[in-house]
Simulated assay, not measured.
Amino acid sequence: MAEKRNIFLVGPMGAGKSTIGRQLAQELHLQFFDSDQEIEKRTGADISWVFDIEGEAGFRAREESVINDLTEKQGIVLATGGGSIKSKENRNRLSARGIVVYLETSIDKQFARTQRDKRRPLLANADDPREVLEELAGERNDLYNEIADVVVQTDDQSAKVVASQIIKQLDL
């Protein structure tokens, strides 16, 4: 049997990386990982706490370590944190160790999907969350596109439909 390939999902918060990742892993009979959940498991604390205590820099260092460890596995689907692509090391590892799928979504959808979620440190204390989402998109969208092997639009589509589109585009 051919070596199992890794599929890495990148994109902004609220794009559906975790939900679509679980669906994709299930359909392809692969193991699913979420880098944020893995950080929480390793620290014994939620992401917001890590951000509060260690700041974004501390969180990003932990994220880099987790992504390095997880991308060394074979035959996984990995949902990465929205800001993970800020690190050149992460971008290089993701590109070199698997197929990168950029889950693209509009600011309107992101806002709708994240507005009641209190577990998003970059939005939690923002005066204008929509403005924060727009700023993050400006900083990150080119980086998502730069490393993506495939780009899939997630607005107004179920996780099952998006997973099917990814499978079709990757010819799996």
Rank of each mutant, 00 (worst) to 15 (best):
F111T: 02
R42N: 13
R93C: 02
R93L: 06
I166Q: 02
V132A: 09
D156T: 03
Q31L: 12
R42V: 04
S158H: 05
R97M: 04
E27I: 03
A137W: 09
R93K: 15
L133W: 02
W49F: 15
R140G: 10
K41T: 03
K88R: 14
R140M: 08
R91H: 03
G14T: 05
G21L: 01
V152K: 11
W49C: 07
A25M: 00
N90W: 09
D52P: 08
A124Y: 11
V50P: 08
R113G: 03
V150G: 15
L122C: 14
V161W: 08
E27N: 12
V152C: 06
Q23V: 10
G21A: 00
K88S: 13
R42G: 04
A96H: 01
T154P: 11
Q153W: 06
V150W: 14
L123M: 14
G83Y: 10
L70Q: 09
A137G: 14
W49D: 08
R5G: 06
I76D: 02
G16K: 01
E27K: 00
K73Y: 08
V162D: 06
A126W: 11
L70R: 09
I167S: 05
Q157G: 03
R42T: 04
D52W: 14
I39G: 02
L9Y: 13
V77P: 01
E134W: 01
N141K: 08
R91Y: 03
A163D: 00
K4Q: 15
T71Y: 07
G75N: 03
E146M: 15
E89Y: 10
I39Y: 07
A57S: 13
Y144A: 14
D142V: 08
E27F: 05
Q110L: 12
E134V: 04
E72L: 14
L30H: 01
G16S: 11
G14N: 05
R113T: 00
W49P: 14
T114W: 00
E64G: 06
T71P: 09
F33Y: 08
D127K: 15
L94N: 12
T154A: 00
I67P: 01
V10K: 06
F8T: 02
F32S: 08
A61T: 14
E134S: 10
L170V: 06
L28I: 04
E54W: 09
D156C: 15
N141A: 12
D108I: 06
A148N: 15
K88W: 11
I47G: 05
D128L: 11
E104T: 07
G82W: 00
L94V: 11
Q115K: 14
G58M: 00
M1I: 13
V77S: 03
D155N: 12
G21E: 00
G75F: 09
E89N: 13
V161N: 01
P12I: 08
D156M: 02
G58I: 09
D128A: 08
V50G: 10
G55M: 10
D128F: 15
